[in-house]
Design a protein around this nucleic acid. Structure first.
Lengths: 334, 334
DNA sequence: TTGAAAGCGTTACCAC
DNA sequence: GTGGTAACGCTTTCAA
């Protein structure tokens, strides 16, 4: 019925002022008398006027929209990340265009959509950008930031957990608690997260004289953890501890071990990564490495907003430490 | 550096045609000769031209953006829902503005943002709209649809699992499998989902002569399931089976029971709702009611798109059945 | 402090 | 088929 949309012009007419003045009230707010402001606000209220962000974006060249492309949203770590990004950005007046990518590299058409909508910035979680993709974003003046991944010599910033350090600490902890036969269930080998966790882990163990680490390649899913652990435990190798690339994988590994008659942690220690909610559930009580989500998200947003403001880009990589959360899935030295 | 954005005008100049013709190529596609089309496409490719969706939206009055406001994104059911919505809508050329609401009623400022951006439609999962909110959307010609909730006498459509039917079937199943002492751990009592599941459950049990159902009120979280089950099992009531309002709650209940020395399902049967991935994990092997996510999402999208097209709204409520998934958390009659 | 007018990058409606 | 031109609803000069 009332198909006609309410515009600033309608408000102007009703309030008996010019459209420019209405615009000032809802925009800068400056240079308008208290009296007219009130008339305008009243008229706007009466008509149910809302400024049109689309029209505004067209002229200001700023949409206040941020694209977020996520992968593995089924991994409980990411909904939490998404929620935090949403909340923080909403506070600052930004809106999220959500995209779910299924590939290690964000696809060209996904990038096209983000560019078409002229988002002010893009957050990429757990995926990478081809160099042509980066060029396309940069050429369109769209700030980019990588969350939980990084690359060498990037043209853009990245925020991630210091996976190498974490891997080391985990290795040290397992040695300290008396383990001698180690295994690692990785995520996909092309991801920097996996590579660094593995490197740190192996390096720490090597320092203690352990060079023979059993490695199984997974994909960060429960199922892959389950299968990998099964394979590991049914081989003729001795394994007294498994470091899993993430928590979901670790939960799979624990279930596999239990199904083979192992007691956790008496017969086998398992350690995860992320510290998702489930890690603290009694059925699992998973010892794990806590990624500092809060800090990571805040830092990402700070960098992104800064980059959106600045004229010249300042590229920087930020590795946040995180911390070991000790629960019940790792046997303490007897 | 190349701060200047490429517009259809630039393409037109390079291709030696008018801007109108460029617009036709990227728009309707009609009324342009093969020759010019190729020139234009070539020029666009060369310049890296992308049509500006913001400008387009301004004139067409259609943004191809859909707002999705979700609650409880930490419940693993919803990331799956989000992923499916994203995928289906992306196929059809729609983009998602993601919002996370923490309230049972979507807040006024959240609605304002959606209206400012002139989304074509809005999907609300697991939350409700005040009647003033509905009026605001409708007045702005924004289609609305409720996912997994419904209200009586609505002004808009809703898609949800037939919770009453499911509750009945679950009641019947527990009776059939030889249970006699029933409990229900609910979600918040103001949600239609909870009310209907409870009603169906109680009605089915009543038909078999069971009237004394122990009820604990939870909030659909793991923790609330844990606490509620503990309370239930430590009371002096006999309980041989618990129907939990959702899977997460059921997992909490199982862990609580185990921590008290109960074996599942020998000493206690537990049944959930949703059929999230975790329900099939060996540690839990949860018997549950599967919500037909795929169908629900598809139906929601069909209704939404239809409503966006139509002049007059056609309100309808769609209850989809779902099905019982039998695993190992319910004792079979001995 | 205010209003008129020029865009922003499209689509849509005209003539030709 | 094609190009000129008027919107779309706003912000932003620029004069007054």
């Amino acid at each position: 019925m009332s198909k006609k949309k309410i515009t600033s012009m309608d408000v102007a007419k009703l309030a008996g002022v010019s459209q420019s003045t209405v615009s000032r009230v809802f925009g800068s707010g400056a240079n308008v008398s208290e009296k007219k402001r009130n008339q305008i606000l009243e008229a706007a209220e009466l008509l149910g006027y809302q400024p049109n962000a689309i029209a505004r974006g067209l002229i200001t060249n700023k949409t206040n929209m941020i694209g977020i492309v996520m992968r593995n949203i089924q991994n409980p770590f990411y909904p939490e990340v998404l929620e935090k990004f949403y909340t923080r950005l909403a506070e600052k007046g930004y809106h999220l265009i959500f995209m779910n990518s299924e590939h290690n590299f964000v696809q060209e058409d996904e990038i096209s959509h983000l560019i078409e909508y002229h988002v002010d910035g893009v957050i990429i979680t757990d995926a990478l950008l081809s160099s042509s993709a980066v060029q396309r974003f940069l050429k369109n003046d769209i700030a980019i930031i990588l969350f939980n991944r990084y690359i060498e010599n990037p043209d853009y910033s990245a925020v991630f957990c210091d996976n190498f350090y974490a891997g080391q600490e985990i290795g040290n902890y397992l040695v300290k608690t008396g383990h001698k036969h180690f295994a690692f269930i990785s995520g996909p080998l092309e991801t920097s997260t996996t590579i660094d966790r593995k490197k740190g882990f192996e390096q720490a163990l090597a320092k203690h004289g352990y060079f023979d680490i059993a490695v199984e390649i997974g994909n960060y899913s429960y199922e892959s953890g389950f299968e990998a652990a099964k394979k590991l435990l049914q081989s003729n190798k001795i394994v007294d501890s498994i470091f899993c690339g993430n928590d979901i994988t670790a939960l799979g590994a624990i279930d596999a071990a239990k199904s083979l008659g192992y007691n956790i942690p008496e017969d086998l220690s398992v350690i995860g990564f992320d510290d998702i909610n489930m890690a603290s559930w009694p059925s699992y009580s998973l010892t794990t490495w806590k990624q500092p989500i809060e800090d990571m998200v805040n830092q990402t947003i700070d960098l992104l907003l800064h980059e959106m403001d600045e004229e010249e880009k300042s590229v920087s990589s930020h590795a946040l430490p995180g911390e070991l959360i000790i629960r019940g899935s790792v046997r303490q030295r007897e």
